[in-house]
Design a protein around this nucleic acid. Structure first.
Lengths: 159, 159
DNA sequence: ATAACTGCAAAACATTTGCATACAG
DNA sequence: CTGTATGCAAATGTTTTGCAGTTAT
């Protein structure tokens, strides 16, 4: 699922303006990374992104991918998620609903959900603890019920 | 904050029984790790735990610490938290309220909170997505208002 | 021109693994 | 006794860093 061209244009403009304001260069590599992560609404890790770019005939180094992701996070065009102990996943964040995640512990399938109560909880917690809360991360872990999920119906032996 | 002796006794018993049921050995090292993580209600990382044990005159290897933490998680005596991309934090989990976390992005101070609505959300999500949800992790990130917090009152320059 | 950026490879870091030795059952 | 567990050190996998060469401004 890709972003409409006009919105993509806006995203590019936002990134360009951000770089300029910061006195950083608008290099082609940075925009290529931006394009690639906005090409889908998947949750990708840095290396996947690197491979996709490489396969797409672009010549960017892993270091540049990481560097650019950092910049994209700084201007809120990308969010990073840390699911479990594995490598971080990145996701485009412009004009997309704020959502939380549900992860199947067996097949690692990822689902997104949204519940307005989380916002209320966040506000309440901010108030009680006198915090300026910038963001939250809510992940639920369990077992899905899909046919092809590997560990489906396998009884857990442990505790 | 340490656990009362009688409860500590129960925890040891649970771990022993668990190992037995699994056909795993009840080695002194494993119980030493258990003692150490139950000695406080801090959130410690594996290396801290290793250092504490070493400083306490015990001779356990890092590998054993990791191995034991895994076992302790399997029998629900310990929970692992992944805050950001840093190393995992472990926390004792017996007879302690289920809680979520609030983290200051400036001083890394950790606060715990609990809101019953999270439970309802979890149940609702489980129902909608036909998931058997085992656990969740909710972290809120922001800036605290404490006097000695390093970045206090520093205006963020970025976007 | 020149300071910032890039690619590469090496470093860093947390965690896991392999193997010879030790020891619980 | 025997199969696990241990300690150590080396391996792993992800992310960061240093540096010489490149390039946007």
């Amino acid at each position: 699922m890709s972003v409409p061209p006009q919105q993509m244009e806006e995203v590019r403009r936002i990134f360009g303006a951000f770089l300029q304001k910061r006195g950083r260069r608008q290099t082609p590599e940075r925009f290529i990374v931006l394009e690639e992560i906005y090409a889908t609404n998947d949750h990708v890790d840095a290396d996947e992104l690197y491979i996709r770019l490489k396969d797409g005939g672009h010549r960017v180094s892993r270091a540049t991918v990481y560097n650019t992701l950092e910049l994209l996070m700084d201007c809120n065009l990308v969010v990073r998620h840390q699911f479990g102990r594995n490598q971080a996943k990145y996701e485009r964040a412009f004009s997309y609903w704020q959502h939380d995640h549900l992860i199947c512990m067996d097949c690692n399938e990822l689902f997104e959900f949204c519940d307005p109560r989380i916002q209320s909880i966040q506000e309440m917690v901010a108030d009680i603890y006198q915090f300026d809360i910038k963001h939250h991360s809510l992940n639920m872990y369990g077992r899905c019920a899909r046919e092809h999920c590997p560990n489906r119906a396998v009884v857990t032996q442990e505790a």
